[in-house]
Design a binder for these strands. Structure first.
Lengths: 349, 349
DNA sequence: CTGAAAGCGCTTACAG
DNA sequence: CTGAAAGCGCTTACAG
């Protein structure tokens, strides 16, 4: 096809196809082209012109220029997701959920920072110059939100205690922690230890506090010096456990709960090296239910947190706000569930 | 609809600071403001006006509007990274590398697709409407690149065999595969098996072909029916290995190489279940050197691929192209290295 | 060194 | 239903 060739040439070079070119070809004004391209023809454009313009658009391969459109509308179609740790496997699910909920109209822009670092407000302000249609902020600090003072649509994810700043979607990690305590109590454990994360995000405080509280209520003792903390790193957790285990063993600890599965992998690894039998001698559990937890040996008992749903709900809420619809429920909480595996429960015969 | 009102309120509260406002305050024209804001004052603006404008910018908190700027310049400051699988832990390093190399002037926009799916050309065309300053494409197909026919700066990552389309940064996975074959030959293995990835990306063909060729040259036999393939999934690999192992064992296979560490995790797991001693009875190795490979038990021997460097180099090259500088070396190849761990080598006494 | 002006591509009241 | 025109915020020749 000759016209196809032409289009290819045009694209390959640079001659951007503009609304003016479409208008010329269809014999209408650019206003009409805009109306058709945006599907706002309802009672404003004749059927005849609609098909004329559609044809021209197809022939020329016209795509509305985001820049021009954004400037005219005062807003872009970009949604920015600000997060401290996109390299976390858990976060991949969150992103997938957001992407699905936003649909094709919005472009998702990930604000990428160095692992574990939260973006500085300055960085985000630069992103705001893109005039995003909306903002999604994952696991922020109160300070960050105060400094930010965003004007447009904003939804928070995994930001417990910060509900006053904006609509949020949170994970009820406390519930998961309590399920875990109950599971261990049912198995007869009396002395447990806890390996915390030292990053200081609110979710970790809640995980620990809820577990300690429920444990106490169920008759499991977690002595103060049986609570240790490391960064979210297999090696670091392994080292800390190696140092702590002799004391714990002497004190009769038979179960250890870790703030993340990554910590738990370190414990499992070191336990094997030290010849500690899992779960007979020591039960091990974590949070997050990372992909490898289901298939490790033994499988790791873990509090499953629905990352996919977290992202999807946040995306849906944001979308509603961006479309000017109200939110019936500005605050959403998603439940975790307990995945019981071999690390806390010997295989039944 | 409390939150709806909240948003509305916020929207009205923040007036956008424009160059015109800065100009008025500083007593200059917007042209001068633009020059100062973009650091193009060299011999064009008096010291006096420079400081005047700087002051006004600081006082008003002016940030150049990306949209207006992009439209005027015909190009935005966005760099789009198109990739099939951002949820791959390996890819997190690539992203970090890119981010570091691009610096603060460019915003990195990840084109997120469903896991394993490559974006359709249509999706990318919509992204092109953002007038990106440059494009980074990871592991594309030739077909995709043909359809794309991008005009602007473009650098490919991990796209072996597609060097004719654009400057690229590739990983020499063949080299890693040969190192692996040599390592196994040195350990005296005579019969090996291969667990391939069935996704059909070029890198996997190269991994397999190079390993098979070097193995043959070094006296290791890999029978045709000792090559199997699964998706990149621990469970799938475990199942396939379980089915294949009895035959392999009968045929005297003492080593199995997997196209990815993820496949290898499945093999390790199933081997434990089946009571196969690693590495005494069966040596296991993979590619990618994922984070858990260093700390699993036994540690997994793996071909380390420098994801960080891959991203960094690609970012650097793209940057050079975007800045109009030529590339001395349009084609870059990064070496992998072999990480030998317990899965192929019994701990020395 | 400086500012008035054109223009980037689009959308949207507005007048017909 | 339709098009001319203003305007979004900025950058860049251009003329002084």
């Amino acid at each position: 096809m000759e016209s196809g060739e032409q289009v290819h040439e045009l694209r390959g070079r640079t001659p951007r196809v503009t609304a003016a070119m479409v208008a010329a070809r269809a014999g209408v004004s650019t206003a009409t082209v805009s109306l058709v391209a945006n599907g706002k023809t309802q009672g404003r454009v004749s059927e005849d012109n609609i098909s004329r313009v559609r044809e021209a658009i197809a022939e020329l391969g016209y795509v509305v220029d985001s820049i021009g459109s954004s400037l005219a509308k005062g807003i872009s179609s970009i949604v920015i997701l600000v997060a401290p740790d996109i390299s976390n496997p858990f976060f991949a699910n969150v992103i997938a959920g957001v992407r699905g909920a936003l649909g094709a109209e919005y472009q998702l822009l990930l604000s990428v920072t160095d692992a574990g670092e939260f973006p500085r407000v300055d960085d985000v302000r630069r992103l705001l110059a893109l005039r995003p249609a909306g903002l999604l902020v994952d696991a922020p600090s109160a300070e960050f939100l105060e400094d930010l003072s965003v004007a447009g649509p904003l939804v928070l994810l995994d930001a417990p205690g910060l509900e006053s700043f904006a609509p949020s979607v949170n994970l009820d990690v406390g519930h998961g922690a309590r399920l875990l305590a109950r599971h261990l109590a049912d198995a007869g454990h009396k002395q447990a230890a806890y390996v915390d994360s030292v990053t200081g995000t609110a979710t970790f405080d809640i995980r620990r506090a809820a577990f300690l509280e429920e444990s106490a209520a169920l008759g499991i003792t977690v002595a103060t010096d049986h609570v240790i903390g490391t960064t979210i790193d297999v090696g670091a957790a392994a080292g800390a456990f190696a140092a702590a285990w002799p004391g714990w063993q002497r004190d009769g600890v038979t179960a250890v709960v870790c703030a993340t599965d990554t910590h738990a992998y370190g414990v499992l690894q070191e336990a094997r090296v030290a010849g500690v039998r899992i779960p007979q001698e020591l039960a091990v559990a974590g949070f997050d239910d990372l992909p490898y937890s289901a298939t490790s040996n033994p499988g790791l008992t873990s509090v499953h947190l629905p990352g996919d749903a977290l992202g999807a709900k946040a995306g849906e809420q944001l979308r509603r706000v961006m479309e000017g619809k109200g939110l019936e429920q500005p605050q959403l909480i998603l439940q975790g569930s307990l995945m019981v595996r071999g690390s806390t429960e010997a295989a039944s015969t």
